[in-house]
Design a protein around this nucleic acid. Structure first.
Lengths: 325, 325
DNA sequence: GTGAAAGCGCTAACAC
DNA sequence: GTGTTAGCGCTTTCAC
């Protein structure tokens, strides 16, 4: 049994292939009787139309792509990343599209799958993480008139680029409120100096933290040196001068504190908090407070936005912020 | 600048589109002069042929797919998984194919992307993990004459299925040799009862371990209860009756031992060993010996095998075993 | 060596 | 309501 074509179905049903096409596409100009007859044949023969040919006729692929860089292991290690993919798929489904993933490894001489997919027009639109948006990928996308949506922090400034990102200010606010609610008063925030200047999301997190601290009449402390957090090296013995809780802006920082504690042998006397969950947390001796981000919603928003671009709708928001909980 | 077609290139170059096609496909029936002229136009206009149309003419997609189940987070959490994808891409490249990934989540009512990709013939072949091969996926693949290769342990017995797997016997042998080389003599192997009976890869690992132990005149101990490994509950105080090294057949078991040690507060006095690396290992207080598997090679082998099937070559091996180091 | 024309499987504009 | 035909962008006979 070789793959059936629309012509064969038409022959079996004793109609023209155009009629079969009409049935397939829910065109109303078909009599009840013919429709049922054709549907019966389709069902009995398990006929599935060839989307390649369909795409050629429509000049569409009915496919949405997601691009990742698998040299960036962090994303994949995060199980919530899959929640986001799930969110995208939900929306892709509703639009009867296919969803596929492709790679765009950094630092390769040959064309990445991303570059090929875009230049060969194998997808109607692409979702990509902000880490992959740079001059060259932007050029490629626009030169090929490929609609795209970016996930993550907005580093690459350009008009006509659409973003979906987490609301980091709000996230930091909620997290700080939570720690205060737990009775903490000497809450510090830990971020490295370079990223404070460079990364918008770090600045947002610090801003959210400061807002809440100020609102409660508490002082803010932004520290960027690991040593200042640890009793021994700071030489401070008076615990009241040290934090009772530390918010780490990134997971790397959180782990650096834990590593240091392990080396010193004695756990510092403060609680830890950070953004987003991590599968490692359950294996740690210390409890880590974190604020979780609804990545499924983030995926859904990104896909919805991309469909709007694909369908050339008006009034597309430049940026969507996902709240946290 | 809208997307160029072969016809436009032909017009610009002042030749027939068939000639352009011949140039694109390296057909030799083109004069040196014409060829250079056409190539120049192609280069100057950055023309990339539409693979969808190309595929329609060839009745091929020039695309290889990889299917995963993102409800199974283990695979993705393992950074070496990407080494495998890299291996696949290497081979896919050499064959001038595209490579894409799709999902096949378990327990969904609607058709998965995998099911759609297969039934709509969007790929020429598929690589899938053994966890996803079952009666229904097998049916679908064969009904659509879709070539496929399975990665991982051979659970689903069926003629005409091709597998690429790790050589678990050899892996266990190397690991055991290593531990003996480190001076260990009372080496035990830990595997849960159900999987000893059910899983071929566990049986292979135990076999490899037993071979080497026997070869050194040492006794083999296969244990499947956690308690028998831990001093306190076994009530044994004589350390010489307990192991000095334990090989865990799975990472789950390794972590169950670590959890138990943490609860008891005192680390057991034996070393741990297992198969395959894990990003968590560096965060553990205890050193874990492991044997690493060349997943890049595994990916390459799988893709090579799949191309052989796609090209309907003869003499395709049913199964390829990847050695470990 | 090159061009003209048919065809891959499908959709859509136009007849009837 | 249904059939006919042209065409999506490409490859591939088959002429010349």
């Amino acid at each position: 049994m070789t793959k059936l074509t629309i012509q064969q179905i038409a022959d079996i049903a004793g109609v023209n292939k155009a009629t079969v096409s009409r049935v397939l596409n829910g065109n109303m100009n078909v009599s009840q009787k013919t429709q049922e007859k054709v549907e019966k044949v389709i069902r009995e023969h398990n006929y599935v139309p060839n989307t390649i040919a369909r795409g050629l006729a429509f000049n569409k692929t009915f496919t949405m792509g997601f691009c990742h860089d698998y040299t960036d292991k962090r994303a994949f290690a995060n199980p919530f990343f899959y929640k986001m993919l799930q969110g995208i798929e939900n929306v892709v489904y509703r639009n009867d599209y296919l969803f596929l993933m492709m790679s765009h490894p950094t630092g390769q001489q040959k064309k990445s799958m991303f570059e090929r997919m875009v230049s060969e027009q194998r997808v109607d639109g692409i979702i990509l993480p902000s880490t992959l948006l740079n001059d060259s990928s932007f050029q490629l996308l626009t030169a090929n008139r490929m609609p795209f949506v970016v996930l993550g922090e907005k580093e690459f400034a350009h008009r006509n680029v659409h973003w979906v990102d987490v609301d980091n200010v709000q996230a930091a606010e909620s997290l700080t409120e939570r720690l205060i609610g737990l009775g903490h008063r000497r809450i510090w925030i830990f971020a490295d100096r370079a990223s404070i200047e460079r990364d918008k999301f770090i600045q947002d997190r610090i801003a959210g933290y400061s807002n809440v601290m100020a609102g409660h009449g508490l002082p803010s402390f932004v520290v960027s040196r690991l040593e200042s957090l640890l009793t021994k090296e700071s030489g401070i013995n008076d615990n009241s001068l040290l934090p009772d809780a530390v918010i780490c802006c990134t997971h790397d920082q959180l782990f650096s504190i834990l590593d240091e504690e392990k080396k010193e042998g004695s756990p510092a006397e403060f609680e830890l908090a950070t953004f987003d969950d991590n599968p490692l947390f359950q294996y740690l001796s210390k409890t880590v407070h974190y604020i979780s981000i609804d990545l499924e919603q983030m995926g859904e928003q990104a896909a919805t936005l991309l469909f709007k671009k694909i369908n050339q709708e008006e009034d597309i928001p430049d940026m969507i912020r996902i709240p946290t909980s």
